[in-house]
Protein backbone atom coordinates (compact mmCIF):
# COMPACT_ATOMS: atom_id res chain seq x y z
CA UNK A 1 0.00 0.00 0.00
CA UNK A 2 2.72 2.38 0.91
CA UNK A 3 4.53 1.68 -2.35
CA UNK A 4 1.38 2.48 -4.26
CA UNK A 5 0.97 5.82 -2.57
CA UNK A 6 4.62 6.57 -3.07
CA UNK A 7 4.70 6.00 -6.77
CA UNK A 8 1.57 5.12 -8.64
CA UNK A 9 -1.24 7.19 -7.23
CA UNK A 10 -0.59 10.38 -9.14
CA UNK A 11 -2.51 9.50 -12.33
CA UNK A 12 -5.53 8.65 -10.19
CA UNK A 13 -5.31 11.91 -8.33
CA UNK A 14 -5.11 13.65 -11.69
CA UNK A 15 -8.33 11.96 -12.79
CA UNK A 16 -10.05 13.09 -9.61
CA UNK A 17 -9.01 16.67 -10.30
CA UNK A 18 -10.27 16.35 -13.86
CA UNK A 19 -13.66 14.95 -12.83
CA UNK A 20 -15.44 18.33 -12.74
CA UNK A 21 -14.13 19.06 -16.23
CA UNK A 22 -15.16 15.67 -17.59
CA UNK A 23 -18.55 16.04 -15.98
CA UNK A 24 -19.08 19.48 -17.52
CA UNK A 25 -17.91 18.26 -20.92
CA UNK A 26 -20.19 15.23 -20.78
CA UNK A 27 -23.19 17.30 -19.69
CA UNK A 28 -22.51 19.84 -22.43
CA UNK A 29 -22.37 17.17 -25.13
CA UNK A 30 -25.54 15.55 -23.77
CA UNK A 31 -27.34 18.89 -23.99
CA UNK A 32 -27.74 19.39 -20.24
CA UNK A 33 -26.88 23.09 -20.52
CA UNK A 34 -29.35 23.72 -23.30
CA UNK A 35 -30.48 26.30 -24.45
CA UNK A 36 -27.70 28.66 -23.33
CA UNK A 37 -24.62 26.58 -22.40
CA UNK A 38 -22.35 29.62 -22.52
CA UNK A 39 -24.15 31.40 -19.72
CA UNK A 40 -24.44 28.39 -17.42
CA UNK A 41 -20.91 27.12 -18.04
CA UNK A 42 -19.39 30.56 -17.43
CA UNK A 43 -20.70 30.32 -13.90
CA UNK A 44 -19.85 26.64 -13.38
CA UNK A 45 -16.29 26.88 -14.69
CA UNK A 46 -15.77 30.02 -12.62
CA UNK A 47 -16.96 28.20 -9.50
CA UNK A 48 -14.53 25.34 -10.11
CA UNK A 49 -11.67 27.74 -10.74
CA UNK A 50 -12.44 29.36 -7.36
CA UNK A 51 -12.67 25.96 -5.67
CA UNK A 52 -9.23 24.97 -6.90
CA UNK A 53 -7.68 28.31 -6.02
CA UNK A 54 -9.13 27.88 -2.53
CA UNK A 55 -7.77 24.33 -2.44
CA UNK A 56 -4.33 25.55 -3.51
CA UNK A 57 -4.39 28.16 -0.75
CA UNK A 58 -5.43 25.50 1.78
CA UNK A 59 -2.56 23.12 1.10
CA UNK A 60 0.20 25.08 2.82
CA UNK A 61 -1.61 25.71 6.12
CA UNK A 62 -2.81 22.10 6.18
CA UNK A 63 0.68 20.77 5.44
CA UNK A 64 1.92 22.28 8.65
CA UNK A 65 -0.33 19.95 10.59
CA UNK A 66 1.67 16.75 10.92
CA UNK A 67 -1.12 14.44 9.91
CA UNK A 68 -1.52 16.23 6.60
CA UNK A 69 2.10 16.80 5.71
CA UNK A 70 1.82 14.28 2.86
CA UNK A 71 -0.24 16.94 1.08
CA UNK A 72 2.99 18.59 0.00
CA UNK A 73 3.17 15.98 -2.77
CA UNK A 74 0.06 17.45 -4.38
CA UNK A 75 0.66 21.12 -3.91
CA UNK A 76 1.85 21.60 -7.47
CA UNK A 77 -1.00 19.48 -8.80
CA UNK A 78 -3.64 21.51 -7.02
CA UNK A 79 -2.09 24.77 -8.21
CA UNK A 80 -1.96 23.55 -11.79
CA UNK A 81 -5.61 22.51 -11.55
CA UNK A 82 -6.51 26.03 -10.42
CA UNK A 83 -4.72 27.32 -13.52
CA UNK A 84 -6.45 24.74 -15.71
CA UNK A 85 -9.97 25.63 -14.53
CA UNK A 86 -9.25 29.35 -14.83
CA UNK A 87 -8.11 28.81 -18.42
CA UNK A 88 -11.23 26.75 -19.04
CA UNK A 89 -13.31 29.65 -17.72
CA UNK A 90 -11.61 31.96 -20.25
CA UNK A 91 -12.04 29.51 -23.13
CA UNK A 92 -15.75 29.13 -22.29
CA UNK A 93 -16.13 32.89 -22.32
CA UNK A 94 -14.46 33.20 -25.72
CA UNK A 95 -16.13 30.22 -27.39
CA UNK A 96 -19.45 29.47 -25.75
CA UNK A 97 -20.37 32.84 -24.30
CA UNK A 98 -19.17 35.30 -26.94
CA UNK A 99 -19.17 32.81 -29.82
CA UNK A 100 -15.72 34.07 -30.83
CA UNK A 101 -17.42 37.27 -31.94
CA UNK A 102 -14.62 39.80 -32.06
CA UNK A 103 -17.08 42.70 -31.74
CA UNK A 104 -18.44 41.21 -28.54
CA UNK A 105 -15.04 40.47 -27.03
CA UNK A 106 -13.62 43.84 -27.98
CA UNK A 107 -16.48 45.80 -26.47
CA UNK A 108 -16.24 43.72 -23.29
CA UNK A 109 -12.52 44.47 -23.10
CA UNK A 110 -13.06 48.16 -23.66
CA UNK A 111 -15.79 48.63 -21.09
CA UNK A 112 -15.74 45.91 -18.49
CA UNK A 113 -13.15 46.43 -15.77
CA UNK A 114 -14.01 43.17 -13.99
CA UNK A 115 -12.63 41.26 -16.95
CA UNK A 116 -9.20 42.75 -16.22
CA UNK A 117 -9.36 41.58 -12.62
CA UNK A 118 -9.99 38.07 -13.97
CA UNK A 119 -7.30 38.37 -16.63
CA UNK A 120 -4.84 39.58 -14.00
CA UNK A 121 -5.55 36.55 -11.81
CA UNK A 122 -5.19 34.30 -14.82
CA UNK A 123 -1.83 35.82 -15.80
CA UNK A 124 -0.56 35.31 -12.27
CA UNK A 125 -1.69 31.68 -12.36
CA UNK A 126 0.02 31.30 -15.73
CA UNK A 127 3.30 32.65 -14.35
CA UNK A 128 3.02 30.34 -11.36
CA UNK A 129 2.21 27.37 -13.59
CA UNK A 130 5.26 28.04 -15.80
CA UNK A 131 7.53 28.33 -12.77
CA UNK A 132 6.04 25.36 -10.97
CA UNK A 133 8.68 22.81 -12.03
CA UNK A 134 11.51 21.71 -9.76
CA UNK A 135 13.97 23.11 -12.27
CA UNK A 136 12.44 26.56 -12.10
CA UNK A 137 12.24 26.34 -8.35
CA UNK A 138 16.00 25.76 -8.20
CA UNK A 139 16.79 28.37 -10.78
CA UNK A 140 14.74 31.06 -9.07
CA UNK A 141 15.91 30.17 -5.58
CA UNK A 142 14.64 32.69 -3.05
CA UNK A 143 12.76 34.59 -5.70
CA UNK A 144 10.55 31.59 -6.35
CA UNK A 145 8.81 32.04 -3.03
CA UNK A 146 8.46 35.76 -3.62
CA UNK A 147 6.98 35.18 -7.06
CA UNK A 148 4.54 32.60 -5.78
CA UNK A 149 3.29 34.98 -3.14
CA UNK A 150 1.56 36.72 -6.05
CA UNK A 151 -1.21 34.18 -5.53
CA UNK A 152 -2.43 36.42 -2.71
CA UNK A 153 -2.82 39.33 -5.11
CA UNK A 154 -4.52 37.02 -7.60
CA UNK A 155 -6.96 35.95 -4.89
CA UNK A 156 -7.86 39.55 -4.16
CA UNK A 157 -8.37 40.09 -7.90
CA UNK A 158 -10.70 37.08 -7.97
CA UNK A 159 -12.76 38.52 -5.12
CA UNK A 160 -13.04 41.79 -7.07
CA UNK A 161 -13.94 39.85 -10.23
CA UNK A 162 -16.76 38.16 -8.31
CA UNK A 163 -18.26 41.25 -6.68
CA UNK A 164 -18.00 43.45 -9.73
CA UNK A 165 -20.52 41.38 -11.63
CA UNK A 166 -23.11 40.08 -9.19
CA UNK A 167 -26.64 40.88 -10.30
CA UNK A 168 -29.28 39.87 -7.78
CA UNK A 169 -27.74 36.83 -6.19
CA UNK A 170 -24.75 37.59 -3.98
CA UNK A 171 -24.49 34.16 -2.33
CA UNK A 172 -21.63 32.87 -4.48
CA UNK A 173 -19.58 36.03 -4.06
CA UNK A 174 -20.21 35.93 -0.30
CA UNK A 175 -19.19 32.27 0.06
CA UNK A 176 -15.92 32.61 -1.84
CA UNK A 177 -15.06 35.92 -0.21
CA UNK A 178 -15.44 34.33 3.22
CA UNK A 179 -13.31 31.33 2.20
CA UNK A 180 -10.60 33.49 0.62
CA UNK A 181 -10.50 35.99 3.46
CA UNK A 182 -10.14 33.13 5.94
CA UNK A 183 -7.31 31.56 3.95
CA UNK A 184 -5.48 34.86 3.52
CA UNK A 185 -6.12 35.66 7.18
CA UNK A 186 -4.38 32.43 8.17
CA UNK A 187 -1.26 33.71 6.43
CA UNK A 188 -1.37 36.99 8.27
CA UNK A 189 -1.65 35.20 11.61
CA UNK A 190 1.18 32.75 10.93
CA UNK A 191 3.37 35.55 9.55
CA UNK A 192 2.83 37.58 12.67
CA UNK A 193 3.76 34.60 14.83
CA UNK A 194 6.92 34.11 12.80
CA UNK A 195 7.75 37.76 13.16
CA UNK A 196 7.27 37.55 16.91
CA UNK A 197 9.53 34.51 17.09
CA UNK A 198 12.31 36.23 15.19
CA UNK A 199 11.98 39.31 17.36
CA UNK A 200 12.07 37.19 20.51
CA UNK A 201 15.08 35.17 19.33
CA UNK A 202 16.84 38.35 18.26
CA UNK A 203 16.41 39.99 21.66
CA UNK A 204 17.68 36.87 23.38
Amino acid sequence: MKAFWDRKEKPYVLIVFLLPFLWMLGSLLMGQYFPDPGKLLMRLSGIWACVFVAAALSVTPLMKIKRFNWLVRYRRFVGLSAFFYSMLHLVIYLLLFAGLSWRWIRSDLVEKPYIYAGVFALLVLLALAITSTKKMMKRLGRNWKRLHRLIYLATIAIVLHLWWQVKGDTSLAVIFTVVFVMLLGLRLISNRKKLKKTIVSATI
Binding site: L28, P35, P37, L95, S101
Partner: peptide, 14 residues
Protein backbone atom coordinates in the same frame (compact mmCIF):
# COMPACT_ATOMS: atom_id res chain seq x y z
CA UNK B 1 -24.40 41.52 -29.53
CA UNK B 2 -26.73 38.85 -28.25
CA UNK B 3 -27.05 35.08 -28.20
CA UNK B 4 -30.28 34.11 -29.94
CA UNK B 5 -31.47 31.04 -28.09
CA UNK B 6 -31.32 28.13 -28.36
CA UNK B 7 -27.57 27.95 -28.80
CA UNK B 8 -26.01 25.01 -30.57
CA UNK B 9 -24.34 22.25 -28.58
CA UNK B 10 -21.16 24.29 -28.38
CA UNK B 11 -21.37 27.44 -30.46
CA UNK B 12 -23.95 30.11 -29.66
CA UNK B 13 -25.93 31.87 -32.35
CA UNK B 14 -24.48 35.36 -31.90
Amino acid sequence: EERRLPSGVIFPNV
